[in-house]
Design a protein around this nucleic acid. Structure first.
Lengths: 227, 227
DNA sequence: CATTGGTATTTTGCATGCCAAATACAGATG
DNA sequence: CATCTGTATTTGGCATGCAAAATACCAATG
C-alpha cells in the first residue's frame, strides 16, 4: 500500500492565489513606464468583474501584492500599481546585491558540483555575435543566472526574501541591458563569478557578485535619467 | 491658514492593521518553544470574538503575517503559528547577515556624522559589571543596535526587507545571548563595527558585520540542539 | 475487537450587502 | 467670474451569510 509512492494531489489552487498570480503576471507584462497614469489604478470591483470572482479574494491578493511592493494601498482610496522611482530602483539593486552576494558565498561552500554545472548551461549558446542578435533572450538568461545563484545557496529563507525583489529586477534589466556595451562586460563578469564559485572560493565569489551588482547600480545612477 | 503647521490626522489605523499589530505582538511576546503545540493554532472565529471584530480583517492580517513567515497557512485547515527549526533559524541569521552587512557598507558611505553618533548612544551605560547584571536590557540594546545599522543605510527597500526578518532575530537573540561569555565577545565586536563605520571604512564595516553574524550562526549551529 | 462506512460538526473560502469616507459636481453667493 | 458649500456618486472597509471541505464521532459489520 505504502509502496505505491503516490504524490499528494494538490487542489491548492484556491481562487485567491489564482487572482494573485493573474494580477502579478499582468503587472509584470506591462511596461509600467509607458502607460497612462490613470491605468495604474486597480479598481476592486472592476478586477472582480473581469476575473469573474467576488471582491474578497481580490482583496487578499492585493494585500499580498502590497507586501511585495508591487502595489501600494492608499487608505480609503484603493490600490495603485507601484511605479518605482530611479532612487527606488537603485535601492532595489543594492538590496539584491546584498542577498545575491551572500548566496554566492553559500553556493561556493555548499552546493554540489552537479548543481553548479547548471550555471554554465544557462549561457550555453550565447557566444560572440549571437549575443547582440538575440539580446532579449540573453536578458532572460541573465536574470535566470542571477536567480539560480540564489537557489544554489540552498537557503530557503534567502530565496523567499529575494523572490519579492526579483520581479523589480526584471523591469530594471530589460531597460538597461540594451545600452552601450554593457553585455560584453556582463558576460565576462559572469564567467568570473562561475569560476570563483566552481573553485569554491567563497570570499571571491561573494565579492564578484556584489561588485557586479554595484556596477549596475552605478550605471543606473549615471544613466536612465528618464525615470 | 497654512501657518498653523497642523499635522494631518491619521485615521489610518484601520481595523485590519490593528488586528495585524495585535496578533504580531501576541506572537512576539510568547515563548513559542514552551507552549502546548495545540495553542499554536489560530482560530479565525476565536480571534474575531476576542478582538471584537469580524473575520474579514482577521483574514487580511493573517495573509500579511503569513507573508512574513510568522504564521503558516494550511489550505482548508487554517493558520498555525510558525515555529522555526534550528536549520531555519540559521537560514534567518545568514539572510540577516547579508542585509545588515550591506547596510553597514552604505551607512559608512552615506550616513551623517550625527546619525552615526546614535550608534554609540545605544550602548551608553552598559559597561563592565552592569552588563551581566542587566542581560535582558542589554539584549534589547543589542537588537536595537543591529536594527539601527539597517536604518542608517538610508535604504528604505533594504529596511523593509529586513523588517520581516527582525522579528525572528529577536527570538534568536533572547535564546543565545545568555549563554557562556558571548556578550563579552559581542560588545567588542560592536565597538569595532562602530569604529569602522565612523572612519568611513565601508569594506571593513561590511566585513565585520558579516563576520559577527556568521559567528552567531556558527554558535547556534554548534549549540542549541534542543530546537 | 478492529475496521470500515456514514453522518454530524467544525472551519475555512468565497460571495454579498451595508456603511462611511472621499471625491466630483453643481448650484449658490459674494 | 471666482469661490465656497452642500449634495450625489463612487469606492474601499467591514460584517455577515452560505457552501464546501475536512475532521471527528459513532455505529454497524466482519
Amino acid at each position: 500500500m505504502a509502496a505505491l509512492g503516490l504524490a499528494a494531489i494538490r487542489a491548492d489552487t484556491s481562487i485567491s492565489v489564482r487572482v494573485y498570480d493573474a494580477i502579478k503576471q499582468a503587472i509584470t507584462e506591462t511596461n509600467l513606464y509607458e502607460i497612462d497614469p490613470a491605468d495604474l489604478r486597480l479598481d476592486e470591483r472592476e478586477l472582480a468583474a473581469r476575473l469573474g470572482v467576488s471582491r474578497t479574494p481580490i482583496r487578499e491578493a492585493l494585500v499580498r501584492l502590497e507586501h511585495e511592493g508591487l502595489v501600494t494601498s492608499i487608505p480609503r482610496r484603493g490600490y495603485l500599481i507601484a511605479r518605482k522611482s530611479k532612487a527606488e530602483l537603485i535601492e532595489i539593486i543594492l538590496t539584491w546585491a546584498a542577498l545575491e552576494s551572500m548566496a554566492a558565498r553559500l553556493a561556493a561552500q555548499h552546493a554540489s558540483d552537479d548543481a553548479l554545472h547548471s550555471l554554465r548551461e544557462i549561457f550555453a549558446g550565447f557566444e560572440g555575435e549571437r549575443l547582440a542578435a538575440e539580446l532579449d533572450e540573453y536578458s532572460d538568461a541573465n536574470l535566470r543566472f542571477h536567480a539560480r545563484i540564489i537557489e544554489l545557496s540552498g537557503n530557503e529563507t534567502l530565496r523567499r526574501t529575494a523572490e519579492g525583489i526579483l520581479i523589480h529586477m526584471r523591469a530594471i534589466r530589460h531597460r538597461t541591458i540594451g545600452e552601450n556595451q554593457r553585455f560584453e562586460r556582463s558576460i565576462v563578469d559572469h564567467r568570473h563569478i562561475i569560476e570563483a564559485i566552481e573553485r569554491r572560493d567563497a570570499e571571491e565569489a561573494e565579492r564578484l557578485v556584489r561588485d557586479h551588482a554595484l556596477a549596475l547600480a552605478a550605471h543606473v545612477d549615471a544613466n536612465d535619467n528618464d525615470l
